[in-house]
C-alpha cells in the first residue's frame, strides 16, 4: 500500500518498506512514473488530482495533513500547508 499525493505542481509517493519510510517526488506531469507496476487497489490518493489518478480510496489533502501532523506533532494547534497554487490552514 502506498500514499500518492498528486498536487498542482508536484507528485509525491510515500511507502513503508520493512518499517522504513521511503518517498519519491517528481513533477505532476510525471506522476505515472511513481506508480509504475503498482496496482490501483494499493494506492490511497490525495492532492488536487486525487480522484483522477488510480486509487482504492482518496482523501483531501486537508484530512491527510491532519492525520500526518497528529501522528508526528500531536501538540500542534495549527497546520499551514503552502501548496503549489493555494495555501490551507
Amino acid at each position: 500500500m502506498i500514499g500518492l499525493d498528486v498536487g498542482s505542481t508536484t507528485a509525491k509517493k510515500v511507502s513503508i518498506e520493512d518499517g522504513e519510510i521511503k518517498y519519491q517526488i517528481t513533477g505532476t506531469h510525471n506522476w505515472r512514473d511513481l506508480i509504475a507496476g503498482i496496482d490501483g487497489n494499493d494506492i490511497i490518493s490525495t492532492g488536487y488530482f486525487r480522484n483522477t489518478v488510480p486509487h482504492r480510496a482518496s482523501v483531501t489533502e486537508i484530512t491527510a495533513a491532519i492525520y500526518g501532523v497528529r501522528h508526528y506533532f500531536p501538540d500542534a494547534d495549527v497546520i499551514v500547508d503552502i501548496g503549489g497554487r493555494i495555501q490551507r490552514s
Binding site: I62, I86, R88
Partner: peptide, 14 residues
C-alpha cells in the same frame, strides 16, 4: 471556487 470545494469535502470527511 475549487479551494472552497476542497474545504467542504474536508469538512465532510471531518
Amino acid at each position: 471556487p475549487e479551494q472552497i470545494k476542497l474545504r467542504l469535502e474536508a469538512f465532510r470527511e471531518a
